[in-house]
């Protein structure tokens, strides 16, 4: 995935079954963000990979004051990339089983 400066990782091991997964997001390189970034640490949240949209979570982070509006896109993309990887891994596990 592209280096967006925002890192998203699984906050717990993926059992491959739950639609709701725990993710952890933090800023690795604030120079890649357009807006002013307040260093608030790692943000942990649950995400439903079947029903939720990464950009929606990014928007909620903006509304909560974690990121500037101009960075909603980059945050959404970072979550989207990680979710795509998790889905890909799950599909691969299913097809190899």
């Amino acid at each position: 995935a592209e280096d967006t400066g925002v890192r998203v990782e699984l906050a717990e091991e993926d059992d491959g079954r739950k639609a709701s997964i725990a993710l952890k997001l933090w800023v690795e390189d604030s120079r890649k963000l357009k807006g002013k970034y307040k260093d608030s640490g790692a943000i942990e949240f649950t995400f439903d990979i079947e029903r939720e949209v990464p950009e929606g979570v990014a928007q909620e982070m903006v509304e909560s004051g974690f990121f500037h509006e101009s960075d909603a896109k980059i945050v959404g993309k970072s979550i989207r990339d990680r979710v795509a990887l998790i889905k890909w891994r799950r599909e691969r596990t299913v097809s190899s089983a």
Partner: peptide, 27 residues
């Protein structure tokens, strides 16, 4: 541990905790 919780108007919970130094890129 200094984790804090933020609940959004949509009901989502964000748990904020410090990032370990080792996980940060050198700036």
């Amino acid at each position: 541990n200094t984790a804090t919780q933020v609940v959004t108007s949509a009901g989502r919970r964000f748990i904020v905790s410090p990032v370990p130094e080792s996980r940060l890129k050198e700036q």
